[in-house]
């Protein structure tokens, strides 16, 4: 009941308030405002529906471990520049546990790793970006499970998408409005990183997808989940 009220409040008060503030007080820089507000409001329904559902504590702990692992990935690969397995971990989680787990692992990884790398207004945007990647991959999981090639393509594309989306943030954040030349210049400067990011996601998926699948199966057998 309580949570129903909160979700109604978001729809009937939160969204109009966002639009109103954007058009009156922050009108000069409304795109930045909308970007932050929309990314926050898009994570809230996922969290609410997750809180509502019944979950076994083992499931919660597994999500926690997968989140911590993708944060660890960001920490452990410091020695190897631009190799970051977060997207790969989110993709693998989404494929094995479904869209909800994919979204949660993505969003929580962004939030948690920023406790180590620095929080900021970009946290909400990162959470939405990684969360939605996990969600979309999770929706396609039956197709992706059948074909390893397709999974690798999806992983590489997710890596590129994440990079492109974060460039949108940088571009709009700088100008407070949409300036295509700025976005293109950011794309050009970040192109090498985008490529390495996509390739590294691909490499991680190739190297890790099978072992993780085996490990999950082993745990399922061992503990009878």
């Amino acid at each position: 009941m309580n949570k129903k009220i909160i979700s109604y409040l978001i729809v009937f008060l939160g969204i109009p308030a966002v639009v109103l503030l954007g058009n009156t007080v922050f009108s000069g820089v409304k795109y930045v405002w909308f970007m932050i507000a929309v990314s926050v409001l898009s994570t809230v329904p996922f969290v609410i529906s997750f809180e509502k559902k019944e979950h076994s504590v083992t499931y919660l702990l597994l999500i926690a471990a997968l989140t911590a692992l993708s944060v660890m990935g960001r920490l452990i690969f410091v020695a190897v520049p631009a190799f970051k397995p977060v997207t790969a971990m989110v993709v693998i989680t989404a494929v094995y546990f479904g869209p909800e787990a994919g979204f949660l692992t993505g969003a929580f990884s962004a939030l948690l790793s920023n406790f180590y790398f620095g929080q900021g207004p970009w946290t909400a945007f990162q959470m939405a970006a990684w969360g939605l990647i996990g969600f979309v991959i999770g929706l396609m999981r039956n197709r992706l499970k059948q074909s390893r090639a397709l999974l690798c393509v999806a992983g590489a594309v997710s890596g590129v998408v994440y990079s492109l989306v974060m460039d949108v943030w940088d571009a709009i954040f700088a100008d407070g409005t949409v300036l295509w030349s700025r976005y293109v210049s950011f794309l050009a400067t970040s192109a090498p990183f985008t490529v390495i990011y996509a390739v590294s996601t691909l490499v991680f998926l190739l190297l890790l997808e099978k072992p993780i699948g085996k490990k999950l199966q082993r745990i399922k057998d061992k503990y009878g989940i």
């Binding site: 076994s56 504590v57 083992t58 499931y59 919660l60 702990l61 597994l62 926690a64 471990a65 997968l66 911590a68 692992l69 660890m72 990935g73 452990i76 690969f77 020695a79 190897v80 190799f83 397995p85 490499v203 991680f204 190297l207 890790l208 072992p211 993780i212 490990k215 999950l216 082993r218 745990i219 061992k222 503990y223 989940i225």
Partner: peptide, 28 residues
Amino acid sequence: NVVSTVKVYSALIGWSLENAVETGKNMK
């Protein structure tokens, strides 16, 4: 460097998932 770190990471994944399930059973 990449291969060795991936190997470490892979071993870590197995260990952590098992640990998480144990903790979950324990909490239950």
